[in-house]
Computed example of a mutant assay.
Amino acid sequence: MKRLSTVRAILVMALALFLVACSESEEVTRAKPDPVHFESGDECHVCGMVITRFPGPKGEAIAGKEEQARKFCSTRDMFSWVLQPENVNRDHVLYVHDMADTEWQAPDDAALIDAREAFYVVGSERSGAMGPTLASFAEKSAAEAFATEFGGEVVAFADVTMEHLSSGGGMSSGMGGSHSM
């Protein structure tokens, strides 16, 4: 009987240690990776264009244990990738430029923000890589001010749809072309 109690005590302790170890590793995997800087030779994951050659906000998705970064020449291309059925439910961290804190012609990577918390102006007269893009902002009031000046509709991340991307949502054709969906 005493031996059975000792075995039970050891099993309970082992289980407790296992649970503690699992919960610690869970916290480590949930740590949010930092945004990655855009380098001069980086190519868009969707279209293959050199990202830094174009104005407007850029996007990136960081996924997996290796924290592989997929970079996009525009928020439009980022959403085109994110909204694909095979990516919609993936666990990835997304970043975009806060256009209230950086220049349109050459966005500064110090202004990268969490894309899921951002507000977007769809259908403005401002162009990004190869034409229409979604202007991204950390604050709704900044997005509204941008929409007042340049046109468009303010939407939250969760409200952006493929229709916003494919129909243009009133977007202009900008630099003479657009990506195909």
Score class of each variant (00 low, 15 high):
Trp81Ile: 04
Val20Trp: 11
Ile10Glu: 09
Glu67Ser: 12
Glu139Tyr: 04
Tyr95Thr: 03
Gly176Glu: 09
His179Gly: 11
Gly152Arg: 00
Ala69His: 04
Thr75Ile: 05
Phe119Cys: 03
Ala61Gly: 10
Gln68Phe: 06
Lys58Gln: 11
Glu144Pro: 14
Gly151Asn: 09
Cys73Tyr: 05
Ser23Gln: 08
His164Ser: 06
Met181Ser: 11
Ile10Tyr: 10
Ala145Ile: 08
Arg70Tyr: 08
Phe137Pro: 03
Lys58Glu: 03
Gly59Asp: 01
Thr6Tyr: 15
Leu94Ala: 05
Ala143Phe: 03
Leu134Asp: 05
Pro107Ile: 03
His45Tyr: 15
Met49Gln: 03
Glu139Lys: 13
Glu39Trp: 05
His92Pro: 01
Val160Gln: 04
Ala129Ser: 12
Phe79Ile: 11
Ser23Pro: 03
Ala9Asp: 09
Ser180Arg: 07
Glu24Ile: 12
Phe79Cys: 11
Pro107His: 05
Pro107Met: 05
Ala61Thr: 04
Lys71Arg: 10
Val46His: 07
Gly177Arg: 10
Val154Asp: 00
Pro35Gly: 12
Asp159Pro: 14
Ala110Met: 01
Leu83Pro: 08
His37Asn: 13
Pro55Asp: 01
Asp42Glu: 09
Asn87Lys: 00
Gln68Asn: 13
Gly169Trp: 01
Leu11Phe: 13
Ala135Tyr: 00
Leu165Asn: 00
Ala118Glu: 02
Thr29Glu: 12
Met181Asp: 12
Asp91Ala: 12
Pro85Gln: 07
Gly56Met: 08
Ala115Cys: 09
Glu66Ala: 14
Ala21Glu: 09
Met99Asn: 08
Gly64Phe: 00
Ser173Asp: 15
Gly59Glu: 01
Val96Trp: 04
Met78His: 04
